[in-house]
């Protein structure tokens, strides 16, 4: 398996530099994030590579990767859509949004569409309830006021961008 790119290693080095030199382990969360950004998900080989680089045991890395919910230990679609389903968002219509997404994509929570485009995930409060219902795209982009209509335009935009192969992230 190929190593992570030089660019990823540069970013990991920048993360390591944020902590005292004897505490490289502090950079493990950032390193996993950077690796997941490059690869889409975290394979056992990737976890091992990060463990070696940070001089910590693969088990320590595995523990972190399994504890935090935003790391993917299985491959996911090109776009992950994580819908917040906690109470404040639910009061603002998150359930309708979720049902709509499931129907259109024809998948349930945790599943990926057959074309590998979308993975649908259910999430807890993202600290953005004022704009609820919210969904988080690829762990990075917060989309607010996600009514069923807003979902339709988001999906249309993402499908269009695939044709042009532009990276909307």
């Amino acid at each position: 398996m190929n190593k992570l790119s030089a660019e990823s290693y540069q970013k990991i080095d920048a993360a390591i530099a944020k902590y005292p030199p004897e505490h490289k382990q502090s950079a493990v969360m950032a390193a996993l994030t950077i690796a997941q950004d490059e690869r889409g998900w975290l394979s056992p080989e990737t976890l091992k590579e990060i463990a070696d680089y940070l001089d910590i045991s693969p088990l320590a890395v595995y523990e972190v990767a399994t504890f935090y919910t935003m790391y993917h230990l299985k491959s996911v679609g090109r776009y992950t859509l994580t819908v917040c389903t906690n109470l404040p968002c639910a009061l603002q219509g998150a359930n309708r949004t979720a049902e709509h997404l499931k129907k259109i994509l024809n998948i349930d929570w945790g599943e990926t569409t057959q074309d590998g485009m979308f993975t649908l995930l259910s999430g807890e409060c993202m600290g953005a309830c004022g704009e609820g219902p919210v969904l988080l795209r690829n762990n990075k982009t917060m989309c607010g006021n996600m009514t069923p209509q807003a979902v339709d335009s988001l999906l249309a935009e993402l499908c269009r961008s695939r044709k042009g192969d532009a990276d909307v992230g």
Partner: peptide, 12 residues
């Protein structure tokens, strides 16, 4: 690490 359901002030 604002994650208490209903809280979104620190983000703003």
């Amino acid at each position: 690490d604002e994650g208490e359901p209903g809280t979104f002030k620190d983000r703003d």
